[in-house]
Each structure stands twice: as structure tokens, then as C-alpha cells.
Amino acid sequence: MKLQKTVNIKNKKASFEYFFLDEYTAGMVLTGTEIKSIREAKVSMADAYCIFHRGELFVKNLNISKYDNGTYYNHDPLRERKLLLSRKELRKLEGKLTDKGLTIIPTRLFINDRGLAKLDIALAKGKKLYDKRESIKEKDIKRDQERF
């Protein structure tokens, strides 16, 4: 078991599939074995998304693997986890979700300098196929310019 000094897990698929409109940093309500798995960087964010339930924001399908040394106290890897944001931010996000085609997706999971797990989430709009091609084209042009 080797713990990393910095944990910075990114959702690479998200930037390819969505345009980011607004970004927020949220805390997470976790159990003991979940934070230990996060410190070992055993997290998959590929299919994760956020939903509102009774005025609170939850992240679904965020796969935090079971802790190897956990006993019967181990957590369910795909359970819904509550996100901690201010009321003002929650109201703003919930109001914007009424627009067609918008969703909230996690973009990055990290541990801050105080040792707390934080999740960067983004209000996002899905890209069409031609938008994805345009993004690939822009990345190639940027990479070519950096070479010279």
C-alpha cells in the first residue's frame, strides 16, 4: 500500500464530451474506507454525474473502489455521495438545470492541503459530433504551435 502525496484524479472523458459553462468546488460526505481508497487513487469518474434530490446535490456512479484492508466496515463502491456546497450555489445550479441539455458532471477529484477530499464539478452542455471534431482540430493546432 503506497499512498500518494498528492491526489489529482481527472475526468478526461468529460472535456471531450461536454462544454463547461460554470465550475464549482464541492466537499464530499465520505466514510473512513472511502477516503483511504481515494488517497490510494482508486477512483473511476468515467460515468459519474450529479443529481438534485430534495434540494441537495448528490454524485452518482462515482466508483471509489473498496479499501483492500477494510473489513465488514467497507463501503459500497457506487453509492450516492452527498456534495457540500453553499445554499446560494445550490440554488443557482438548480435554477440553471432547468435549461434544456444541461447537466452537472464531476471533472476532478483531489485532496486539498488540509487533507479533505474535494470534487470539482461543472455545469456542462453536451457536444455534438461536429463540436468534438472541432475540439480535436484545435488541440492538434495548439500542439503543432507549441512544437515550433
Rank of each mutant, 00 (worst) to 15 (best):
L3K: 13
I9C: 03
K10W: 09
K12S: 12
K13H: 04
K13T: 08
A14R: 06
S15A: 07
F19Y: 15
F19Q: 04
D22G: 00
E23V: 09
E23Y: 02
Y24K: 12
Y24D: 09
A26I: 07
G27Y: 00
M28K: 12
V29M: 03
V29L: 14
T31M: 05
G32M: 04
G32I: 03
T33N: 13
T33W: 06
E34W: 02
K36C: 01
I38P: 04
V43H: 09
V43A: 12
A46D: 09
A48G: 08
A48L: 05
A48Y: 10
H53P: 00
R54H: 07
G55W: 10
G55C: 07
E56C: 03
V59P: 05
K60D: 02
N61H: 14
L62I: 03
N63C: 06
N63W: 01
I64Y: 03
I64P: 00
Y67C: 00
N69Q: 05
Y72H: 15
Y72N: 15
D76F: 09
P77G: 01
L78M: 07
L78A: 06
E80G: 01
E80Q: 09
L84R: 07
S86K: 14
S86R: 13
R87T: 03
E89T: 12
E89A: 15
R91P: 04
R91H: 08
K92N: 15
K92Q: 15
L93C: 14
L97R: 09
T98K: 08
D99S: 04
D99P: 00
K100N: 14
G101D: 06
G101T: 03
L102F: 10
I105P: 01
P106H: 13
I111D: 02
L119A: 14
L119S: 12
I121K: 13
A122F: 01
A122N: 07
A124H: 06
K125R: 15
G126A: 15
K127V: 02
K127I: 05
K128D: 08
Y130M: 11
K132A: 04
R133V: 09
R133P: 00
E134K: 14
E138F: 05
D140P: 01
D144T: 06
E146G: 15
F148S: 14
